[in-house]
Design a protein around this nucleic acid. Structure first.
Length: 893
RNA sequence: GGGCACUUAGCUCAGUUGGUUCAGAGCGUCUGCCUUACAAGCAGAGGGUCGGGGGUUCGAAUCCCUCAGUGCCCACCA
């Protein structure tokens, strides 16, 4: 079969993925081997693959495949997340497009639509993962809202409620007016915005003119209408909720306002002036309007001073009846309107531009509204106490470790978690309200009923008397159980899978969900299993474009991973991702990296074409090939050891780069060229066998990064039988041997000699076909490698000479001088210039070394080995300088 | 406003506890090659006073201080 000179990934990839599936090569069952478990960070069920996934899944696949090849029982569990808010928003939008309002539907009707949506769009991303090569155990595919996961969530809720860790109460929460639900603190993101600061006049009510003491610093505003205080706010639309004005008791400017009452502008309500140290004297005028219903701090003041609460907003952030004005209008329209009205009424002192940070909903993007409401909360201090120590003492390791700080800071300032959402798409809170007031919490409605009967003493209660809480749980309240619930560890903790696979091994995720997910999984792990959920956490970077901008739909700077795979092959794209992905660093993705990956595939492909094309003959192995094989075996052992070390440190980019260079430079560039027979000549069986063994080892090293091409070539290379696969044919590359270091060092010298000759060739424009002679001055330290040098540099003979030819171009390898006789081809002036420059450099270097050695404190203070090294540097430099001087003298002579 | 990182070749990054021959890699750049595995390639070359300044040390890219810049996280100044 003739092989094309270019690797074509498309067919190969489809073929092998199907082969892997057909032979259940990703499936895992508990056995005697050491388990290696990874749970996928479940993508949104209706999501599509983007570059962030591409990176994340590639890393997981590399780790999983590596573990599998090491002989571990690797199990990578895939699944999707129901993504409560995001999915519900999409369903609501679709319904709206059909002219259906959510509020016109019953819960059951809405959920039918949601499930329908999920079935239509769900799981697309899991199919896409196959294109990437992800070696997930698809039989274990789970969904955060499937039956098992739902049972786990409900069981855990009941358990925590019974432990007294879940409570219900009215608190100030983050309200998303678009999704019309409460959010946790973590779901609020702060955005810098250019806004206005409005300075409004609050006239003193029934002003009798008292209060002014004329003391230093006192600031009294007054106009024809009387005396007034000025309050600066970014939210003038909330004045209808004002119930007090607050000044700092230590603020002389506003002393005169003590004990007074002021009039809310436009509204006309008379409110008291209170005093509290909370108020920042420097901000604005030092007067703060207090709106307990719509600001967390104001709420705190309200509690402290027993102020009334006037909630002026409807759930969609339009003004409510309670506002009394602008009723039904949107908060931002009201802001514009009220600014105008204040202006016209002469109640606006001034308006200034102001940069402010606005809390916005992570999901819908709209500014959140602090709102008092009845919600369910999880007490977090208990969990923080559980989850902090294992990370700080490295029982659970973070890569990179810098995230330990972030983690600690969050846990040390933990607040209770608002877990209820006013949504339908999610796990419904298993609380049941009684007709007589109060509620019970139970896993099933039947249990709830018996609890209710016991609680009320009323045996006549029926299911119809119980009303289940309308709220759903925060999505993360199911995600935090993921590593446990995937193995049914909540509902059936004694099952064999759970005992075998849990704790999982590595978690790969982005640092953006360290609080949402990672921290909470650790909490859940210790709370419900008494064990860590995973041993290591690998935090990926955020994928940015080459200009450093975060990839996003709106910027249009995010390539479609599948399109990239079409163009460069999955292996090419995987490599492109990994080339720029050191752990924890943001990765600046550039499509040319995929090109590099594709080129590498091609390089591997062509190296294979070369080897495959060789005919064999019964012949003794040439000396050059024997040397090459001995050297490359050592080179391979060293790289394999280095790569293993990099895996241990999760330095996957470095590991890939090491294998890349090993294959391209050392194997293809040096080894294959050394053993390659003359065109049309056969190769001896020993060399062919060794070469295939090396190739096999290289494919094994490459496989985790580039699964498709390696499987394809491995089949050709080893003539595998059906059902076999490179991924389950572990190959142990021996540990480096004692003699390796010498072997490697000698070959480096040989390479330098070859490079030296080639450089001469290049400089003089001598074609590769023209054989050259080589002289070694005095002695030849690499005489044993003469055959290699002859072949690689096209050198006809190597002579040891006392003095090199007059017309020779010389170069130094270490302290050893070599020369290529060129007859009249040599450019004397150029040679002199070159030698002179080198001499000057060396003299400067020697001066530095001498200075160091001349320093008594260095000789006395530094370790003997270091001093010895300096002496060697000195000696070598002197030797080289002497050689160069001779060369120069000869050239000039 | 607090905290944590980072600043090394044109670009992206290594550089382990301060000490192996003027600081390394990949990509890009330049020069020469279509040499029957590969031009998605081969051979060679150039490129950095390790952000600025100060200090500790026999010795600093590496430790300390300081200044400047960048990024991220957290925070209730309206």
């Amino acid at each position: 079969m003739e092989l094309a000179s270019k690797y074509n990934p498309t067919e190969v990839e489809a073929k092998w993925y199907q082969y892997w599936l057909d032979h259940h090569l990703f499936s895992s069952r508990p056995d005697a081997r050491e388990p290696y478990t990874v749970v996928i960070p479940p993508p949104n069920v209706t999501g599509v693959l983007h570059m962030g996934h591409m990176l994340n899944e590639t890393i997981q696949d590399i780790l999983v495949r590596r573990a599998r090849m090491e002989g571990k029982n690797a199990c990578w569990v895939p699944g999707t997340d129901h993504a409560s808010i995001a999915t519900e928003a999409k369903v609501v939008a679709r319904l709206a497009a059909q002219g259906i309002r959510k509020t016109d539907l019953t819960r059951e009707e809405f959920l039918r639509h949601a499930w329908q949506w999920t079935e239509e769009h769900g799981g697309i991303i899991l199919k896409q993962l196959r294109r990437v090569g992800a070696s997930c155990d698809w039989d274990r595919t789970a969904f955060t809202m499937d039956e098992e996961r739902s049972r786990s969530v409900i069981k855990v809720f009941v358990d925590l409620y019974n432990k007294g860790l879940i409570y219900r109460g009215v608190r100030m929460v983050n309200w998303d007016p678009k999704a019309q639900t409460a959010l946790s603190d973590e779901e609020v993101v702060y955005k810098e915005e250019h806004t206005q600061l409005y300075y409004m006049k609050y006239y003193v009510a029934e002003d009798d003119g008292t209060g002014a003491t004329g003391e230093e610093g006192e600031v009294i505003h007054q106009d024809g209408r009387g005396r007034y205080a000025v309050v600066a706010t970014t939210r003038p639309e909330t004045i209808m909720g004002d119930v007090a004005m607050c000044i700092n008791p230590a603020d002389p400017k506003n002393h005169w306002l003590r004990g007074k009452k002021v009039i809310v502008p436009l509204v006309g309500r008379v409110i008291p002036v209170i005093e509290d140290g909370y108020v920042d004297i420097e901000f604005g005028t030092g007067c703060l309007k207090v709106t307990p219903a719509h600001d967390v701090n104001d709420y705190m003041l309200g509690e402290k001073y027993n102020l009334p609460v006037i909630d002026i907003f409807n759930p969609d952030a339009t003004l409510s009846e309670a506002a009394g004005m602008y009723v039904g209008q949107d908060r931002f329209d009201v802001r514009r309107q009220i600014a105008k009205d204040l202006q016209e009424a002469g109640l606006m002192e001034k308006v200034e531009a102001y940069d402010n940070k606005i809390g916005c909903s992570e999901r819908t993007g709209v500014p959140i509204e602090p709102k008092l409401s009845m919600q369910w909360f999880l007490k977090m201090q208990h969990f923080a106490d559980l989850a902090l120590p294992p990370v700080m003492n490295d029982e659970i390791r973070f890569y990179p470790a810098k995230y330990k700080n972030t983690y600690r800071h969050w846990l040390e300032n933990i607040k209770d978690w608002c877990i209820s959402r006013q949504l339908w798409w999610g796990h419904r809170i298993p609380a049941y309200y009684l007709p007589t007031g109060g509620f019970v919490v139970a896993e099933t409605v039947e249990e709830a009923l018996s609890l209710a009967r016991a609680k009320t003493g009323n045996e006549a209660l029926t299911l119809a008397d119980l009303r289940q809480d309308e709220d759903a749980l925060d999505t993360w309240f199911s995600s935090w159980l993921w590593p446990i619930s995937l193995f049914r560890g909540i509902t059936d903790p004694d099952n064999a899978d759970f005992k075998y696979y849990y704790p999982t091994s590595d978690l790969v995720t982005g640092p953006d969900i360290i609080f949402f997910w990672v921290a909470r999984m650790i909490m859940a792990g210790y709370e419900f299993t008494g064990k860590m959920p995973f041993r290591n956490v690998y935090f990926t970077g955020i994928v940015r474009d080459k200009l450093g901008r975060k990839m996003s739909k709106s910027l249009g700077n995010s390539p479609d991973p599948l399109e990239l795979i079409d163009r460069y092959g999955a292996d090419g794209v995987r490599m492109g991702m990994m080339l720029c992905a050191p752990a924890g660093n943001d990765i600046l993705f550039d499509e040319t990296l995929c090109e590099q990956g594709r080129n590498f595939c091609n390089k591997i492909w062509n190296a294979f074409r070369l080897v495959r094309g060789w005919q064999t003959a019964d012949a003794p192995q040439p000396e050059t090939a024997r040397i090459a094989a001995g050297w490359f075996a050592a080179r391979l052992r060293r790289s394999a050891a280095d790569v293993a070390d990099m895996y241990r440190k999760y330095r996957l980019s470095d590991a890939l780069m090491e294998v890349y260079r090993l294959f391209w430079d050392e194997f293809s560039g040096w080894y294959l060229e050394m053993v390659k027979p003359e065109y049309g000549q056969p190769v001896d069986r020993t060399t062919l066998g060794q070469t295939i063994a090396f190739f096999d080892a290289l494919l094994h090293l490459l496989h985790p990064f580039m699964p498709f091409i390696t499987e394809e070539l491995w089949q050709h290379l080893c003539e595998r039988r059906d059902g076999e696969s490179i991924m389950v044919s572990p190959q142990d590359i021996p540990a480096p041997a004692g003699t390796d270091a010498r072997l490697l060092a000698e070959m480096e010298t040989v390479k330098s000699v070859i490079a030296g000759v080639r450089a001469v060739r290049n400089a003089k424009n001598i074609p590769p076909r023209t054989a050259l002679e080589l002289q070694a001055v005095g002695t030849d330290p690499v005489a044993a490698y003469a055959g290699v040098i002859a072949k690689m540099a096209n050198v006809s003979r190597i002579q040891v000479v006392d003095a090199k030819d007059k017309g020779a171009s010389a170069f130094l390898v270490g302290t050893q001088e070599f020369a290529v006789p060129l007859g009249n081809l040599i450019d004397v002036d150029e040679e002199i210039r070159k030698a002179q420059a080198e001499l000057e450099r060396l003299e400067g270097f020697l001066k530095g070394v001498n200075k160091k050695l001349g320093n008594e404190r260095f000789v006395a203070g530094a370790p003997a080995a270091v001093v010895e090294l300096e002496r060697k540097k000195q000696h070598d430099a002197e030797t080289k300088i002497a050689t160069l001087r001779e060369t120069l003298a000869a050239l000039r002579g």
